[in-house]
């Protein structure tokens, strides 16, 4: 049996990825997390003196805090298995990646373990966020200097 024949057998038997089911679950859970976030923005606008432009920070921090608790209790992992990108894409998923790595590496100490590994999973997001921001700003500056676009 060669590799191609095997590939056929394997593809036949391996259950297909449930694309539709996964998309629906990601939509519902992702939407729900954003709706909770939306409710939190209203909370900060109504009860504290935040405006629509400044409310982003406390909202994100609150969501990150909630995700920390869920991660520590082992619940975010179950949510992730159910929701896939629905719980990974919101900022709570970023929090889960950071917090789970921090808890995991506690046994290697606070400096080498927690400090050294806290961005093991989420680090690439920061790297690509900052790097892409730099390049986008640079390109925009060049285009403005050339007179192609305005600020």
């Amino acid at each position: 049996m060669d590799q191609q024949q095997y590939q056929q057998i394997e593809d036949q038997i391996t259950p297909p990825t449930p694309y539709f089911k996964n998309v629906i679950k990601a939509f519902l859970v992702g939407g729900l997390i954003c709706t909770i976030g939306h409710a939190i923005t209203y909370f900060y606008i109504i009860f504290f003196d935040f405006t629509e432009t400044t409310v982003g920070n406390p909202t994100a921090a609150t969501m990150v805090f909630i995700a920390m608790i869920l991660t520590g209790l082992g619940l975010y992992r179950k949510l992730g298995q159910f929701a896939g990108a629905g719980s990974a894409v919101p900022v709570t998923g970023f929090s889960n990646a950071v917090v789970s790595a921090a808890i995991e590496h506690k046994t290697e100490g606070l400096v080498l373990g927690v400090g050294g590994n806290i961005f093991k999973l989420a680090g690439s997001v920061i790297v690509f966020g900052v790097a892409s921001a730099f390049f986008v700003a640079l390109i925009k500056l060049i285009l403005v200097t050339m007179g192609v676009v305005e600020w």
Binding site: I33, G84, A85, A88
Partner: peptide
């Protein structure tokens, strides 16, 4: 908020399932 947030997550799910990306690749 629900629909737009949900749709962005759907794009992420498609990147994972159809694009076969790892979560780290998807989020980046």
């Amino acid at each position: 908020a629900f629909v737009i947030g949900g749709l962005i997550c759907v794009i992420g799910q498609l990147l994972m399932d159809v694009g076969k990306l790892t979560p780290a690749h998807t989020l980046s």
